[in-house]
């Protein structure tokens, strides 16, 4: 059984830490720049600019 002591945590941080952070970064970039998401994000950027100042019902 693996013990969560200092040595083991350091080993995990020094090895797998790199890979999960990289995987997450790649995931975020793919999500943000996925061509299909472009319209959705462009609309989101424009959505705040209308002059409407009442809650929608």
């Amino acid at each position: 059984m693996m013990v969560f002591d200092h040595e083991n945590l350091v080993r995990i941080a020094k090895s797998w830490g790199l890979f999960y952070m990289l995987a997450m970064a790649v995931g975020v970039v793919i999500y943000a720049y996925w061509p299909k998401n472009k319209t959705k994000f462009d609309e989101a950027g424009r959505s705040i600019l209308d002059k409407d100042d009442k809650p929608w019902r």
């Binding site: 997450m24 970064a25 943000a32 472009k38 989101a44 950027g45 705040i48 600019l49």
Partner: peptide, 26 residues
């Protein structure tokens, strides 16, 4: 929010704002 609102222009790249959000957070 306030910079695009005052400039009356959408943020230059909404997609870049998502990437920087997760970058900064993590």
């Amino acid at each position: 929010y306030y910079l695009p609102k005052r400039a009356e222009r959408p943020i230059f790249s909404y997609r870049m704002s998502i990437v920087s959000f997760w970058g900064i957070t993590f």
